[in-house]
Amino acid sequence: MARVIVVHERPAWPLRLSAALTLTVVVAIRALPQGRRVRARVALARTARRLPAADAARVRALHGAVAACRLWWWRGQLDCKDRAAATVLATALTGRYCRLVHGARTFPSGFHSWVETVDGTPVGTEEDNGGDHPWTAVHRT
């Protein structure tokens, strides 16, 4: 069972603006057929590879802004894949690069997506008991 993310502080408006823009792109990706969604997320993450690396503080701030931003017109759920892809895109909008990571674990079994910096600092792995039962990266983009 996924844990609900509660963000109590409101991020600064530039972070909220980039989070809202990237969440709009991610919601548009959800309209694609099931088989093309992962390909679209990976393709978007690969477009920013030539940018300089982002530091962990910037990625954490953008991930928090994406988690705090709620599109008023979207009634559906935004899961970990959407938050991770939006964080990668928001980081690219600031002129930096971070990696989109898809992973899994065996007990309790599950799949999860998170973001990590180029030096390997994970951001977003604490969701769904990630601290108690660590995730194993399967694909990094």
Rank of each mutant, 00 (worst) to 15 (best):
A48H: 03
V138I: 13
G130Q: 03
R36E: 00
A57Q: 04
G131L: 09
W135H: 01
T94A: 15
A68S: 04
V66F: 02
A84P: 01
T141Q: 09
V38F: 14
V26E: 15
R140V: 14
G35M: 05
R37I: 09
G130E: 09
L23E: 13
P14R: 07
V88T: 03
V88Y: 10
D128R: 08
T47S: 08
G103F: 08
N129T: 01
G131W: 14
A43L: 08
V26L: 14
R105G: 11
L23W: 09
R16W: 12
A84D: 01
V101R: 05
G131F: 14
V25C: 06
V88W: 08
A53C: 10
R60D: 09
A104D: 08
R3V: 05
A54W: 06
R70Q: 13
E127H: 06
G120Y: 13
V66Q: 00
E126R: 02
V27N: 09
K81N: 04
G64K: 04
N129D: 11
L100F: 15
Y97C: 12
R3I: 02
V59E: 03
W73F: 13
V123S: 11
G124Y: 03
P52Y: 05
D55I: 08
M1V: 05
T22N: 12
A12I: 04
V59N: 01
R49M: 07
H133C: 04
R96K: 07
L93K: 04
G76F: 15
T22M: 11
V101M: 13
A90Y: 00
W72C: 14
L100G: 15
R37D: 14
T87A: 09
A45M: 02
A57I: 00
R30S: 10
D119G: 05
D79R: 07
G95K: 10
P122Y: 15
Q34E: 10
R16T: 13
R46K: 11
L15T: 06
V26G: 14
R83K: 13
A20V: 10
G110A: 12
W13G: 15
A85W: 10
D79C: 03
A19C: 12
G64C: 06
L21I: 00
G124D: 00
R96Q: 10
